[in-house]
Amino acid sequence: MATNGHLVVREFRMSSVHPGPSSAQWALLFSAWLIALVSTLGALFSSEIMGLEPCVLCWYQRIAMFPLALMLGIALLPFDARIVRYALPLALVGAAIAAYHTLLVWGLVPKDLVPCGQGPSCAEVKFELLGFITLPLLSLTAFALIVILLWILKSRNSE
């Protein structure tokens, strides 16, 4: 009986911390996770299946994206909106690196500033769709979308 009573208290506390998510909140987090998941698998496909070797800047973006695919997924099972606090900085850092990388590929950042000593060049375009969609641009889009979705979720949380 004592154990049962304890469980009831715990459940009560958890539900007071997380009132059930509205379906809009859930959809926001789910969309952010889906983008992170597709980006992660896409990155793995390009390196492991297509054999495109990631450059240094690609690796920094992976370091931000791969954990997002895990963290945001865990935060859906069950729903925990506090993930925004941890995931948003990661997505912002990823977006910043992806923005820098995109500018570099477009030639708007001088090459000699690039921290690529060894391995494949970060400025080289190895994959292009429709003549302008490069991997850094896809990465920037993904990070930006995740930032926007998490930002909206954050503002809804504080309401």
């Binding site: 996770w33 998941l37 859906l76 099972l77 729903f79």
Partner: peptide
């Protein structure tokens, strides 16, 4: 829970 099925289904 229906929502966790959606997540697992997506994976």
């Amino acid at each position: 829970m229906k929502k966790s099925f959606i997540v697992i289904g997506t994976i």
